[in-house]
Design a protein around this nucleic acid. Sequence first.
DNA 1: CTTGATCCTCACGTCGCGTGAGGACCTAGC
DNA 2: GCTAGGTCCTCACGCGACGTGAGGATCAAG
Lengths: 247, 247
Amino acid sequence: MAMNKPPPWKVGELAKRTGMSVRALHHYDDIGLLVPALRTASGHRLYDRHDIERLQQIQSLRLMGISLEEVKRLIDGPAVSPRQLIDVHLARVHEQIAMHARLAERLTALAIHLDSAHGASIEDLCSIIEAMTTMEQYFTTEQLDTLRDRRTRISPEHMREVQDAWAEIIPAVRQAMDAGTDPASPGVLALARRWKALVTEFTGGDAAIGKAVMTMYQHEGPALEEKLGHVPTPDMFEYIGKAMKAL
Amino acid sequence: MAMNKPPPWKVGELAKRTGMSVRALHHYDDIGLLVPALRTASGHRLYDRHDIERLQQIQSLRLMGISLEEVKRLIDGPAVSPRQLIDVHLARVHEQIAMHARLAERLTALAIHLDSAHGASIEDLCSIIEAMTTMEQYFTTEQLDTLRDRRTRISPEHMREVQDAWAEIIPAVRQAMDAGTDPASPGVLALARRWKALVTEFTGGDAAIGKAVMTMYQHEGPALEEKLGHVPTPDMFEYIGKAMKAL
DNA sequence: CTTGATCCTCACGTCGCGTGAGGACCTAGC
DNA sequence: GCTAGGTCCTCACGCGACGTGAGGATCAAG
């Protein structure tokens, strides 16, 4: 038997009834969104039936995530069509979702990296992030997924073996190239075979990934060298390419 | 041949190099996140190598959506483990996504309603929203999907027919009930048959939906009456229930 | 008349800067 | 040496939707 008190209501009562805070109602008054129909001599706000209807409209629209500004425009002037506003607003929400989804993906990938390299310092954390964002520039999402998937299946020891192999091969190739050795010479061919094997293992035979890696190295060469140690330069790609043709 | 000027750099140069705004760098200085190593006699900020590394860390962490406050805590004091922070942050992001996804669902449903009832005023818009949010209280998401799906397959004319049928049946049942007519009497049984058919058509035979409708009417009775016109009361449910048992 | 609840009006804080305002400094050409 | 245009400095308001007091007036009940 809720004895519904008749209007006019004071802020506190209205707040309780509608589940709003008194401060919010004050705010709506301040910005002219919901100005109470009357006030007592002492200045207390008194809301009438019409105000309450308006407040319910406001609450409904706010539930849809519409800003107070837009709510006001919608209620006060039917200059904007509801349908159009909903569409625009929905588009904004979808954009937000897409952004947050991308963020969540990055964070999840980051968490995986942190798990594998535990005891990570802030520097490690940041360089992983940097590497990830750099990779995002050059690889498609699927390619990144493929690489991530493959990485999880590789043991840390093997990872180090591969690193060591590159650290051995790259300087060797540079030396041969600088010495003007024929790319088709047996020594260079041996290097090319090892090179090709390493690349194939990394790319899984996917030529697109191989190309992406090359363009990444070409653009980010100096920056990567600091982090990875030994990085092939474009002329080395050319040189070893000749050797591979002679295989 | 980008001649990399050596540090120290002034704000404008650093801003260009890092893609930040000068104002942002000022802000980071203000909050003590990135205080330039030195200043000229006239007060111009000069950033050294160390500052730049720190800025790159800041940028990395900001890319993951981490707040300036947390970035500061992470870099300055390794009191918080990166891993934990990422997890917490990821949880927050997922929450955000869930919220926005729910919002998008509501907005999409709303858009569908607006399409069917075109030329909708703001009042219509708000009452649709209100009805939707009320329904959300009583039906599960799948039930709402089912109902929405079924609604789209029904022609507007049929919708009106159903409305008219209820407007006829409900007062008739009330009259019979108030008159103390036996629920098993032929007239009431005829009403019960029509009632049952209408309910079955709406619920699609789903008892859970039927129950949800009943509890909704019981809780929201008076509020719904204003909008839908004729609404059955709990005692009418009981009365017609007896009649249905006698069918 | 007192007391506790409710009401009022400022006004600052949130978060990450954008955007001026008003003035000092720096570099280059004359 | 002077001037002009670019860069730098320090305030300080603004955004969005209120939360959270501060300090004081008003109201309803005992």
